[in-house]
Design a protein around this nucleic acid. Structure first.
Length: 422
RNA sequence: GGAAAGGUGGGUGAGUGGCUGAAACCAACAGUUUGCUAAACUGUCGUACGGGAAACUGUACCGGGGGUUCGAAUCCCCCCUUUUCCGCCA
């Protein structure tokens, strides 16, 4: 969430930025500023009362030691009075704090200056294109048919075991999955990211830390008995490793990677969007995360974008990079680049990675700060990106690399697969 | 799942109702000394929120939450967690 002092001191700037999201936040921000002002005023009153009470208590203690019991007893009345006052102030204060928190949860991150105004996905800007898209001619098959033909994935079987959106990978299909995971992890490690194996279930605090809660509550699977959430992305556990942590400047940037399955309820999805591997309830993904100094984060974002670019090139897939417009950007993000691969048989673009800079928006909730060499403490910037999500990569690999004899495995992947063709 | 004992600052660890935001030691940082290093000595050494131009100052925080009390790291209750023992088990 945004920081109140920032909103107070840069109201116009924040509003101008937020306007790019095609929504008006001026009323909310006005409320935030005024609620916070009342909050501070009350806090001050409370502090003063407590200070008085502390002083009296100390005096009472001294009097007891001197044996002046009655005098001490006489002073107790005032502290009781103060206590009553404090109680009512505290009630109001808690209420204001809650109100403030709720208001802050309503405001998304302020878009970066390079982000354009836009109402939705149609207005995203293509900032890079890898070139020609594959042209397959007449006999091309969509990936779900290729999967069936080559017995790579059984969607029906998954329905029996769990439900729609939980595919079963079989034989070379399963090995391809494993190969991709290893390939992505290996590439991330070469790029300086430290591999982590993290829990696939997280507690509520972690959900709030990265902003999935309260915003996207309905998107996550919730295990009621134990009050845990299945992770929708490794971003959640990875970033939360640094919740409530005070770092030293020289530790930054911190570069993390991890493979996890991701679980998403995807309520409300339907139609051709969800056919085959296009949208699943469970899928595999390798995530990269960085924590950085404020002044470095945009250079690091570019570095991450280049990393993902490299992966797609090695997989020999046609792709493009979009800079999301204000209206299509995620709640917590300040700047997001989406990567889309071309699905040659479906003749459409599929999102395979979303790489973002969250600036201090997550760090503020996470309370992840660093102490500079000047001794000043400030919030880190957090960044993350998919590098990469498997299902649509698999879809694109199968579709783009199909020929009369089956499917060709790109050279870079062969050592990980152990086979060259499907 | 059952039982017992714990959880204090970066670390070790003292503290059982007021003199404790917290001893001592270690680590870290700055300085003195030194040809350099080491050692020794001196000093600094938590976080958050608020007030102040600043020096500084108020409040809160000893796993988390609540309670008792004029006053809680210290007493009581609930939760989380660690260790050990038992049970179960990949």
């Amino acid at each position: 969430m945004l920081q109140v002092p920032y909103l107070r001191e840069n109201t116009e700037k924040a509003l101008a930025g937020l306007a790019k999201r095609n929504k008006d936040f001026s009323a909310t921000i006005q409320s935030i500023i005024s609620v916070d002002e009342s909050r501070r005023k009350l806090q001050n009153e409370l502090d003063n009362l407590l200070a008085e009470s502390n002083k009296i208590s100390k005096t009472i203690g001294d009097l007891f030691k001197e044996g002046k019991r009655e005098e001490a007893d006489g002073m107790k009345a005032r502290t009781s009075e103060i206590k009553e006052e404090c109680k009512s102030i505290e009630t109001n204060l808690t209420q204001l704090e809650e109100e403030l928190k709720h208001l802050l949860y309503l405001v998304p991150n302020v878009p970066h200056e390079s982000v354009v105004f836009g109402k939705g996905a149609d207005e995203n800007e293509v900032v890079y294109s890898s070139g020609e898209t594959t042209n397959l001619g007449e006999n091309k098959l969509p990936h779900w048919e290729l999967c069936e033909k080559h017995k790579l994935i059984d969607f029906e079987l998954g329905v029996k075991i769990a439900g729609a959106g939980f595919p079963v990978y079989i034989g070379k299909g399963a090995r391809l999955q494993r190969a991709l995971i290893n390939f992505f992890l290996e590439e991330a490690q070469k790029a300086g990211y430290t591999e982590h194996q993290v829990p696939h279930l997280v507690n509520e605090a972690s959900g709030y830390g990265t902003g999935q809660l309260p915003d996207k509550e309905g998107q996550m699977y919730h295990v009621g008995v134990d009050d845990l959430y299945l992770i929708p992305t490794a971003e959640v556990p990875l970033t939360n490793l640094y919740r409530d942590v005070l770092l030293k400047e020289e530790q930054l940037p911190i570069k993390l990677t991890g493979y996890t399955p991701c679980f998403r309820r995807e309520a409300g999805s339907y139609g051709k969007d969800v056919r085959g591997l296009n949208r699943l309830h469970q899928f595999d993904k390798v995530e990269i995360v960085q924590l950085s100094k404020q002044e470095d984060s945009y250079a690091l974002l570019e570095e991450m974008v280049n990393h993902v670019k490299g992966l797609l090139n090695k997989l020999e897939l046609p792709f493009r990079i979009l800079r999301l417009c204000g209206g299509d950007m995620g709640f917590t993000s300040s700047l997001t680049f989406d990567f889309e691969v071309y699905s040659a048989a479906q003749e459409r673009w599929l999102e395979v990675s979303s790489t973002s800079n969250f600036e201090t928006f997550q760090a503020n909730r996470l309370k992840c700060r660093y102490k500079g060499t000047d001794g000043k403490t400030q919030l880190v910037h957090t960044l993350n990106g998919s590098a990469l999500a498997l299902p649509r990569i698999v879809a694109a690999l199968l579709e783009n690399h199909q020929d009369e004899n089956g499917v060709r495995i790109p050279q870079a992947l062969v050592p990980y697969c152990g086979f060259e063709r499907i």
